[in-house]
Amino acid sequence: MKALVSVKRAVDYNVRIQVKPDGSGVVTDGVKHSMNPFDEIAMEEAVRLKEKGVISEIIAVTIGGQKNEETLRTALAFGATRAIHVKEDGEIQPLTAARALAAVFKKESADILLCGKQAIDDDANQTGQMTAALLDIAQATFASKVDIADGKATVIREVDAGLETLEIDLPAVITADLRLNEPRYLKLPDIMKAKRVQIEATNLGDLGVEAAPAIKVTKTAPPPARSKGVMVKTVDELAAMLKQKGLV
């Protein structure tokens, strides 16, 4: 069984995000980037499934410019068996990413696409779902537990009301939620080994995908600064204050 794992290069979670002065986006130049944390969880799940013998091959795939190669190296250090770089220097929106992933999925005849439920840069939470729709295959999003047997996946997903258990036929798309697993620490020998793996390059044109942005960002603004808190002495005082502010 073959798993495709999509890995996105995003601004590192430790970085304090700054909006560009002209409001055209956020500052990404000279800012540390790393693999989207939800994709790390997807990657870890794939490696665990491989360790259990459920899947035999893990193909990491990323879409973006030259620097995305670092993200693929991280995936290889995790334990990906192959790495595919869909080279594209322009903006990549969820639908474009989904089309590219669907094309790679078909080409590779993969059985599962594992990806993060969303990326921490735009929080769009769309790519996994769109890819499943384009491929016309089953999907289970926000997974917190995944079991695979007999051509089916049993997925426990986190929903507003609690936990929901789905049984879906493969091939399928599964997106990882925070509590699916805790990614391992990458070991130095694995990091070094990953350096020597040949990355397979392709591009949107080869995959028959047009990079036509469907969404236009008109303005980016930082959230309003939080005003200073007030210390209250008693619960009564707290209640009175909340009432006064019309919050209860």
């Binding site: 590192d12 430790n14 540390k32 790393s34 670092e70 190296r73 991280t74 250090a77 620490y185 990458l186 130095l188 990091i191 070094m192 990953a194 350096k195």
Partner: peptide
């Protein structure tokens, strides 16, 4: 980059 990747693992 592998130095930085190793650093990020240790930081975590």
């Amino acid at each position: 980059e592998e130095h930085e990747l190793y650093r990020s693992q240790l930081r975590r």
